[in-house]
Design a protein around this nucleic acid. Structure first.
Lengths: 252, 252
DNA sequence: CGCATGCTTGACTGAACTCAAAGTCCGTGG
DNA sequence: CCACGGACTTTGAGTTCAGTCAAGCATGCG
């Protein structure tokens, strides 16, 4: 299986730095609201009530971890300086890299909806981050529009899902992707109160293929293969799952 | 090139419906706040000020379009009933399917940051959506926490980016992915005020590979190939882009 | 009943993975 | 100061997996 790569125990190797070395002033440990708005290139409306708020900064050396999946959500971070890597490590040790955040990018947004970060972030170069504390985002006394809050909470959840599916369908071979797709469909139907073992797919083979990044023929062949193995029973879009465990094993 | 598939001009074909036919009561055209919270499985705090707010519903027949990339953002939608397909159609006609939203899922969140939807959504079955109007999310008089608003705006932007990269690296061959990766890096450095034609990659070949879903050897080979063609000049992590146009052409 | 759409299967081909070996660069420790 | 080791990179050869092209079948609709 590809992408099974040992995570180096030693500190991450750094390329020679040809860029001008950063002159980090020791004194500057705070950023104001306006600087954060500029970094993010925020073009929405603000009311100016928070202009005097000061955000704490956080310095990182190359190779250091900024956020991990093990720690609870404690805020969002805006990159002021440096490059980082956002990734999810699978159980088999393979790593899926989601993005390479840089100046102006946001970190930690996947931690909002479950109060736990959903990905790992490490610094590739020396970094300077600005922290937006969780307390500033969710203190009950501050916000006053429940609808807005609910909507954004749901948006954050959506991000997590997207990352998860993005990661799930990476670097597996086609039959495994199809197996995983079916397992996830089964779980979704289950969550809605339908049978986990019998459901009707609403989409075409082509739609599935375009979702999993394989051709429709490959989807069809994978269905047939899983059928022949007795793991599922396919009849057009009617799917019966005969062994969920076997299906899961196929996902590796 | 794979995935170039004609979009059927005829109405989308529907599978035979074995599930119980929906009894749509004509009268119920509104949902209250609590129902939306339940659908989303929202577990955060609400203050109860909006409990009397009524949300408009929207019915869709199978094959109908719920949202398109051409229309301006006018709100978020929560799926109450039915299955849908979220996709982005590329210039070459290929379609990338992002997700298959179902009951309780959120639609339209990618439209927040640019005030324009970033993906197309069509109904695969008959659907029932609940609309959360844009006016309820951004009316200046309602929210009072600028920090929270800014954070969520940035989160929404992050979703768009993720969708874009997810879509961008789909269904292209490896050399094209690498070319696109370099082009995007170049643009990011440019946006930060550095040279668009010369930059140092902060990440390893393996990181790039794990991001693009190819092996590190494939990344290396692609770099060499682009170098041999005179499109770029590679020296370890130092990249010079000799012809941005040629690089772009390589992405097709 | 015929057409359009979707699904399945087969044969062939080519792109990307795997395994392997050698070379480069950097930081560290003798 | 230099040699060594480790991490990274490049390149090659063989193999496997999935895409392409093509044909035929099934199904629902007009």
């Amino acid at each position: 299986m590809m992408n099974v790569q040992a995570v180096s125990s030693a500190a991450r190797w750094r390329p020679p730095v040809h860029q001008p070395t950063l002159k980090l002033e020791r004194d500057e440990r705070w950023s104001d609201f306006q600087e954060v708005l500029n970094l993010l290139r925020f073009d929405g409306q603000v009311h100016g009530l928070n202009n005097d708020y000061q955000f704490r900064r956080r310095r990182l050396k190359a190779g250091q971890s900024a956020l991990t999946m093990t720690q609870p959500f404690d805020g969002l971070y805006v990159v002021r300086l440096g490059s980082l890597k956002t990734s999810m490590t699978h159980v088999d040790g393979s790593e899926h890299v989601l993005a390479f955040p840089m100046r102006g990018d946001l970190l930690g947004f996947d931690g909002v909806c479950k109060n736990k970060y959903a990905s790992d972030v490490v610094a590739l170069t020396d970094c300077d981050l600005i922290k937006i504390p969780a307390a500033e985002l969710f203190s009950p006394g501050r916000g006053c529009n429940d609808i807005e809050r609910m909507a954004y909470w749901a948006i954050s959840r959506e991000i997590v899902r997207e990352q998860a599916t993005y990661a799930a369908f990476h670097s597996t071979k086609s039959e495994a992707r199809v197996a995983r797709f079916l397992r996830i469909q089964s779980e979704r139907f289950t969550a809605m109160g339908y049978s986990p073992n019998r459901f009707t797919l609403p989409m075409t083979r082509r739609d599935i293929g375009n979702h999993l990044n394989v051709t429709l023929e490959t989807v069809s062949r994978a269905f047939s293969a899983l059928d022949n193995l007795g793991i599922i029973a396919v009849e057009r879009r009617e799917i019966r799952i005969l062994s969920l465990d076997a299906l899961r094993n196929f996902e590796s």
